[in-house]
Write a protein that binds this DNA or RNA. Structure first.
Lengths: 231, 231
DNA sequence: TAGTGGTCTAGACCACCTC
DNA sequence: AGGTGGTCTAGACCACTAC
């Protein structure tokens, strides 16, 4: 019964509601479907788990953007070629700062000592107003002095080439899948219970194979397909 | 209260239980904690969602391997190199049959007509009794006649080489992330709300680049890390 | 047939938010 | 103060699994 109610509700939401709308109260919905409030809650549980609804204690139950939550047609998927990651799409620079490298970054970039400084860039790449990739880039400050001043947005790799004469080449990529934290889910406009593709990769200087950029990218797992072909 | 019970239960499970153990019944646990069965169920819900427990209707509630469920240390992760996929680990042949190719398989293998026959193999690869990869392989029957008889388990690519003289080479791989369905979650002993890495790839004959095998592999996203390095 | 988890009902009280 | 979602209780019946 709760599954039937969930399907009914889901259809109505897709037809009649937009993101941000508030649902009638659980009490009202339970009355309307002629079931106990617990049963109605169980139905809403399903849609919360599916990423369609979001509960707010004391306020109500809100509709989340349904158009992104259900990219059922595979034609709506983005395809990202691994060799092109970090070089395409419109991008917004969210963070640009100099920080001390943590252990992961140090290991990837081969920095010898703790606490060495790196430039941290957080970039959100979008296609047609839809956020697709959220990427943290880490570059050693020793090699890219003043990068924070030189790069203000757009193509990072163009800036690297223009100001430092480097055209990084991908060395390796490691792919895992996780659930997003609140911040990532919000920026990528995805439900917290939908999977996230995480790609960590290292870019090196093609001349000397020295590490120049460590990137941790996050994709909406349901919206992006990574394609790997032999180089 | 249900959160307190969940934490208590989780601690006991990690200390005293191994994967495959059955928990006491909900009725017994509710009695023991002095709460209503619904409250106890709500606590168990948490651990099911966290991937610690798995319910089986009519049988009981089972403990899932906690060492894989919480791979907090990255050293406990499996690493699979994309070029090695399908050639390693111990494997169980779950399904071996001849079927009509669906559209996805036809497109990948370049089969001209609808309804052409392919061999479908479903293989579960495990490491130390832990299921890691679940793979569906599709091979054109025209090229691999009697494969169902020739291959009974073990290394598929050894069998292909021995009986058909082919050593397939990876042509491309496409990676997405999804939530598992019931069957996949059960076979991979993972929670339904944890992410799944899905890798679709095509293997070709190195001699003529003709498609010989289309593979759809599923990994536990939290237990496996795909590594990609230039060949 | 007995035991297990799955669902539904009915009612109560609490915590949170808005007015 | 009144409405919303969050939790707990009590009891019932069903569906599935094992013996």
């Amino acid at each position: 019964m709760y599954l039937r109610i969930a399907r009914t509700l889901e259809g109505e939401i897709r037809d009649q509601h937009n993101a941000g709308d508030w649902l009638p109260s659980e009490h009202a919905l339970a009355d309307r479907f002629g079931v106990n409030r617990h049963t109605l809650r169980r139905a809403v549980d399903e849609l919360v788990a599916a990423g369609v609804l979001q509960r707010r204690h004391g306020r109500g139950t809100m509709v989340i953007d349904p158009t992104i939550t259900y990219p059922i047609s595979s034609s709506t998927r983005f395809t990202a070629n691994l060799t092109d990651l970090g070089r395409q799409h419109t991008s917004d620079l969210l963070v640009s700062e100099t920080i001390s490298a943590n252990d992961d970054v140090r290991a990837a970039l081969g920095l010898p000592r703790r606490g060495m400084k790196v430039v941290h860039l957080m970039i959100l790449r979008s296609v047609d107003e839809t956020p697709v990739i959220l990427a943290d880039s880490y570059l050693p400050i020793a090699r890219f002095a003043n990068l924070v001043e030189h790069y203000r947005g757009g193509s990072l790799h163009s800036a690297l080439k223009q100001h430092y004469g480097v055209s990084p080449r991908r060395s390796w990529s490691r792919i895992t899948s996780e659930l997003p934290d609140d911040g990532d889910a919000s920026l990528l406009r995805m439900a917290r219970n939908r999977p996230l593709l995480r790609v960590r990769s290292l870019n090196v200087d093609p001349d000397d194979d020295g590490p120049v950029e460590y990137v941790c990218s996050r994709f909406r797992g349901d919206a992006v397909q990574l394609e790997i072909t032999p180089s």
